[in-house]
Design a protein around this nucleic acid. Structure first.
Lengths: 238, 238
DNA sequence: AACGCCCCCAAACCACCGTATGATGTTGAG
DNA sequence: CTCAACATCATACGGTGGTTTGGGGGCGTT
């Protein structure tokens, strides 16, 4: 059974990966945060046997987000711990913009606790005792979620770095262009000549790597760029 | 306390509403589905006193989605019922595309049940006994969610109806135009002359109410229109 | 001082967009 | 049959997009 799961995990890992770094690449990374050493040891052993890279922490304070690299990762988090609770910790992580998927485990959980955890975006909430399969399924789901997250993040990071490379003026021009304004209108807003706008616009297209205005608009959507001026669909407002 | 909550509920209703239809407009509509008549009666009375319109059902089978009109609505759903369970019912609703927010109530709930419900998108999961305030807060949140849902749905429906009004050819042209292709390229794909594409394109812009290509691209995004041919950002692939 | 980067502008040029105007043919509903 | 809607295409014209060439000035670093 472990063998099956392991094969499954490796299968998925290979899907999105070149075979060159096969040996270094694993199904994913799991960080276990639990104050009970026995729990840490047994879960760690189970997950390692399934092909995952495992880290353990005795308390949330020990966890360093940097430890999780580019590999798809998830947290297995005990709810009841001395010091900061698992729920508080997750919400703190989330608030700080670190959106790694979380699986809660707990010995004395109740429904409101579960609601709070799930509402905060937890992938699963496992009351003890749970089976090995319960955990492995949850971890598999969590890593799927994280793979998707990393995929999107990589795309957005790429776009963001290109956008950061734009000069201030180019960003201004882009912001207006993607609202659908014509060059002469952009020129009016920025008190420039039309030819200057054309030059900035050309630079924007080249630096952002957009093949067309449609491309640029979609990039801006991905980056969440919205003009301050209100923008409506449709002509009904007449 | 009821008075306070009632005032709160009405306050929220007024926020997004003109005062003209104040008497007809309510804070929202709640449908209670529970096999226990006593529960239905007491919850119904509580919610009505808070200014909500209430409907009750003895079983999921009795519920008609059509009963909930344009008003922001939510379901208060008992998990354990003879016949179809609340969880099954919610998943069936969700699968059928009817995404009204759900609040579960249950006398004998456990954590896996809660996980299943929350994962399926429930707004809250209330184990009995719960306080009046618990329910009213959950209902308030659920109706907020539904208000947002209705808002988005209205926009997309509007766009969809315009897109439906396009002729087949116009839809084809639009699908290619929003990928960033030039008129002559569209003409090539559809084996048309460029002038014909221009005409279709003009019709698309007029019928969709798009003031610019950027508008049209965003509309297509909202409608989930994606070309079959693969489309990438960036020039790195070279 | 020299260099690179940013910002601005003009003239010229070409490709592209968009909209008439006018025309032909098909098809389905009344 | 008539009419409306759909679809197709040509010519022509004006506006727009985009680049090149060439020029000016500012600002900070080396």
């Amino acid at each position: 059974m472990h063998a099956n799961i392991m094969a499954f995990g490796l299968d998925r890992a290979v899907e999105g990966t070149s075979s060159a770094d096969f040996e270094l690449m694993e199904a994913g990374q799991v960080c276990i945060i639990d104050d009970d050493e026995g729990v840490r040891a047994s879960l760690s052993s189970l997950l390692r046997a399934s092909g995952y890279t495992v880290q353990t922490c005795r308390a949330p304070e020990q966890f360093r987000a940097e430890d999780l690299g580019a590999m798809p990762s998830c947290l297995v988090l005990d709810v009841q711990m001395p010091g900061e609770s698992g729920l508080d910790f997750q919400e703190r992580l989330c608030a700080s913009g670190f959106a790694v998927p979380v699986i809660f485990i707990t010995g004395h959980g109740d429904i409101p606790m579960t609601v709070r955890g799930m509402r905060a975006g937890a992938v699963d909430f496992l009351p003890k005792p749970f089976t090995e399969n319960d955990l492995l399924e949850a971890v598999g789901r969590a890593l799927d979620v994280d793979r998707e997250r990393l995929r999107r993040e990589a795309i957005v990071n790429d776009l963001q770095s290109r956008h950061d490379a734009l000069t201030p003026r180019e960003k201004e021009v882009m912001a207006l262009v993607i609202t659908g304004l014509m060059n002469k209108q952009v020129a009016g807003h920025l008190d420039l000549s039309e030819i200057t706008v054309k030059i900035h616009r050309g630079n924007v297209m080249r630096k952002m790597g957009a093949q067309s205005l449609a491309d640029l608009v979609r990039m801006a959507e991905s980056l969440g760029i919205r003009d301050t001026s209100i923008h409506r669909f449709g002509p009904k407002g007449g």
